[in-house]
């Protein structure tokens, strides 16, 4: 018991940033920046107050959705969006596989790697809407432009995550297949593909429902689908129809998300 008389030794978790000057400098710096940034926003509170009133009217008119009077247009828009979504996901998936293989450092050679990473970077740095604007300018209004825009964006997303999955693949399994005298294609098919397949299917399912969400946005810039229908409804101040469209989009997104999560849970 006599040892317990010794002074208790204190222990504290070492700070994340060890240098105190740097640590406090960063904390104070960020605080000051945040205050200055907020102050620079120049908010007109009277305008905000008036806007609240307008917003309430808006919300109220949304309370009674009208599925009937423009039912045909809504149905057509949804079908167009779904076609666009499925086509864009499938094409994006097919094109992303070779690019993803090329962009995985552990199975690719440097020139191919750089090329594929380049394609991915371009695809990912351009937002769907920006691509859609270009495509509308090239191909004219309509779902074809939307399809191209979504497929283009899907390539970057799927290829990047596929490449990362391949880079994390277990080396020993691939090595064992290589040691049998397999060709490169056989090696990918037997040693690599089984390792990335569940993830690729999961990602494609996820991309399918996010493409549907994006399809309603690219429609706003003229690339067809339910977004175009929504845009028209807003232009005509038919908020009840717009409300019906938004509700439909929400229901479809929920259904897609639920089914994709079911499929992903069953994969292993």
């Amino acid at each position: 018991m006599s040892e317990s008389a010794a002074a208790p030794r204190v222990w504290k978790k070492p700070p994340f940033i060890e240098n105190p000057a740097l640590r406090w400098g960063l904390i104070i710096g960020f605080t000051v920046y945040f205050i200055l940034a907020f102050a620079s926003m120049d908010i007109n509170w009277i305008r905000v107050y008036e806007g609240l009133d307008r917003g309430l009217k808006f919300v109220l008119s949304f309370m009674k959705p009208d599925f009937i009077s423009r039912g045909g247009a809504i149905f057509e828009g949804i079908v167009e969006s779904l076609v666009m979504t499925v086509a864009a996901t499938v094409v994006g998936l097919i094109m992303s596989v070779p690019i993803g293989l090329g962009a995985a450092r552990n199975i690719s050679v440097l020139p191919v790697y750089l090329l594929c990473r380049g394609i991915i970077t371009v695809s990912r740095s351009l937002n769907e809407i920006i691509v859609a604007l270009f495509m509308v300018a090239i191909f004219g209004f309509g779902p074809f432009a939307g399809f191209i825009a979504l497929a283009f964006a899907s390539i970057g997303f799927l290829a990047k995550l596929l490449a990362e999955e391949i880079e994390g693949a277990e080396k020993s399994q691939a090595e064992a297949v290589r040691a049998t005298g397999a060709s490169w294609m056989q090696w990918i098919n037997y040693g690599i593909q089984p390792q990335f397949m569940p993830r690729l299917i999961g990602l494609s399912m996820y991309r399918l429902d996010s493409n549907f969400r994006h399809s309603s946005v690219v429609g706003l810039v003229g690339a067809g689908g339910i977004g175009a229908t929504l845009n028209t409804a807003f232009d005509r101040y038919e908020f009840d129809t717009a409300s019906a469209i938004i509700l439909t989009i929400i229901i479809i997104v929920m259904a897609l998300e639920y089914s994709s999560s079911l499929i992903r849970a069953r994969l292993q």
Binding site: E170, S172, A176, A179, T180, Y190, P194, Q195, P198
Partner: peptide, 16 residues
């Protein structure tokens, strides 16, 4: 390589 069979420490089977 076809004439050299290899057996590994952690089996190195393709798990899936």
């Amino acid at each position: 390589r076809r004439h050299m069979g290899m057996i590994f420490q952690e089996y190195a089977l393709v798990e899936r």
